[in-house]
Design a protein around this nucleic acid. Structure first.
Lengths: 110, 110
DNA sequence: CTGTATCCTCGCCGATACTG
DNA sequence: CAGTATCGGCGAGGATACAG
């Protein structure tokens, strides 16, 4: 979620390492598997698949496979997934407002 | 943070396993080391110390040691730490409103 | 293109015992 | 009471190769 926010390794996360970032990537509409791999720099297909499957089980995203050659699969935020955007925005606002204080404090403590 | 919310193993966390719960425990005022161990069921002193030290480095809590016998140490939320209560409340509200949907979806997917 | 299948590393976290 | 010391498990997640 904080990929477009401020920090590389933020102290605030939703669930696992990639879930929140995927939600942000799907905010503006459906995305293909390979389209997700790009902004999520360096995520391996195994981990991306696992994360998406977990989110699908939790009803946060929908998976649509088109029977074509080559195959095409689109992931989209479900209505439930969209409800997460609001509290995530609150967290994002906190980061913008205060994360630098936290990082400053951390650095001062070296 | 969700200890007083709804779920045992919530999909939303702040930082590591205990940070958010500690913030909640300190919400109403300073607490001693042993007072924190009780609500955080079963946290070992090593992990609690490590978590509190990290939060102290990040400027989220203040540590006050009183030179007495037996020793007494109090931990308290800093102003910066208190700013986290607001976005955490938003997440908590999300949990109350939607977490059951997520858990239902997860159960249906068995 | 969209995944699976293995293997492996690394760090969080717990258990237990001990100390000032 | 408030920690420190040591050991170890376990699972998330990365590297790499392969498949439909």
């Amino acid at each position: 979620m904080f990929s477009g926010c401020s920090a590389e390794n933020p102290p605030i996360r939703i669930g696992d390492k990639w879930t929140s970032k995927i939600i942000v990537c799907l905010k503006s509409g459906p995305r293909r598997f390979s389209e997700l791999q790009v902004p999520l720099r360096g995520v391996t297909p195994k981990v991306l698949t696992a994360t998406l499957r977990a989110m699908e089980r939790d009803g946060l995203v929908t998976r649509t496979a088109y029977p074509e050659i080559p195959p095409r699969v689109e992931y989209e935020l479900s209505p439930l997934g969209r409800t997460l955007l609001e509290p995530m925005a609150a967290m994002c606002a906190w980061s913008r407002a205060h994360l630098h204080e936290l990082l400053d404090a951390r650095e001062s403590a070296l």
